[in-house]
């Protein structure tokens, strides 16, 4: 871990304040810049009181919801990545890599084929799928010590994701109607998502937020090993089960809104640990602003780089996430979390 930790650990509070400042700045930029024809100067003028119907529509109907969704998705993915890494004690664990997102996507595709309409059922179905994905991965991890080797677990996750991805394509192939309905959603992106979706997932996000706040302390004890945690008076199995539930709720919610987005859950805890070290409580606090920061920056880049068209967000997160993955495995010794 030493190689990945900044030489002088930054004071957590200062760090969070500066991250929040950056987040506010990025959110503003996200309102100002976009693929549409409304330039930043027009937006500023509109915000200062100029009468500009176009600008008002673009900002309040398109860019503001998009920014809010980016904030929620980033938080959910970043925090769930940190949690999943803590529970599996594996620095490579990531909802996208381990098949949790793929599970959610597959469940939604399956539900559509079986007749559900995309609008009504997507969120609970995605969350169920994410939960099933989580349980599969953890089942694999417990099986004959696969989970003891961080790298093998990721490989199993990659195989699982690839399988679910192929099955999802299969479904899309033979059901043209659902294909059209969710094709844009299967590629993760923040474009064209509706605020209603965000409102619909808000309760689950709040519930998991509360659960995580309650579980943070025992989870930190779990880092010392199961026996040690029991010795300190915690219930490792219960903690783990509840955390998994939180991860499934969060990833399911994020995937239901934006589609599967990989690597955010890997990069965010990685960055957070580099700043504040391995303690899960501090990692969680730092992940909270870092996740949306990364997602929003990636989203802004995705709007600008191939304007007037847009790049799927998942492509960008893969572009900067994959090098982080390589960096983690290249580290001389994989840190055991």
């Amino acid at each position: 871990m030493k190689a990945l930790t900044l030489t002088r650990r930054v004071d957590t509070r200062t760090l969070i304040v500066s991250l929040l400042t950056a987040l506010v700045a990025v959110s503003v930029v996200s309102l100002l810049i976009g693929a549409g024809s409304v330039s930043p100067s027009r937006v500023v003028a509109m915000l200062l009181g100029a009468d500009d119907a176009d600008a008002r529509f673009v900002v309040w109907e398109l860019r503001a919801p998009r920014t809010l969704i980016g904030l929620a998705v980033g938080m959910a993915l970043g925090v769930s990545g940190a949690l999943l890494q803590a529970v599996t004690r594996n620095p490579l664990a990531e909802p996208g890599l381990l098949g949790v997102s793929a599970g959610a996507a597959f469940a939604v595709a399956l539900a559509l084929v079986l007749g559900a309409s995309a609008a009504t059922l997507r969120i609970p179905v995605a969350q169920m799928g994410a939960l099933a994905g989580c349980l599969c991965v953890l089942g694999v991890a417990r099986w004959r010590g696969v989970g003891n080797d961080p790298v093998r677990l990721v490989l199993a996750g990659a195989a699982f994701s690839a399988l679910l991805g192929a099955l999802t394509s299969l479904i899309l192939f033979f059901d043209q109607r659902s294909a059209d309905e969710i094709r844009f959603w299967v590629i993760g992106s923040l474009a064209g998502r509706r605020l209603d979706d965000l409102l619909a997932v808000l309760p689950t996000i709040v519930v998991s937020g509360v659960l995580i706040a309650l579980l943070a302390r025992p989870l930190a004890a779990l880092a010392l090993g199961e026996r040690m945690a029991s010795g300190l008076g915690h219930h490792p199995r219960l903690i783990r089960a509840l955390i998994i539930l939180c991860v499934a709720l969060l990833v399911g919610a994020a995937t239901a809104i934006a589609g599967p987005i990989a690597f955010v859950g890997l990069v965010v805890p990685f960055v957070a640990r580099a700043f504040v070290g391995p303690d899960i409580r501090r990692t969680l606090w730092v992940s909270l602003p870092t996740g949306p920061l990364i997602v929003l920056v990636a989203d802004i880049v995705s709007r600008v780089v191939v304007a007037p068209s847009e790049l799927p967000l998942g492509v960008l997160t893969a572009l900067f996430g994959a090098p982080v993955l390589v960096a983690v495995v290249r580290a001389r010794r994989l840190p055991m979390l």
Partner: peptide, 8 residues
């Protein structure tokens, strides 16, 4: 894993 990253 390095290969998976490159592939991604």
């Amino acid at each position: 894993i390095a290969g998976i990253g490159v592939g991604a």
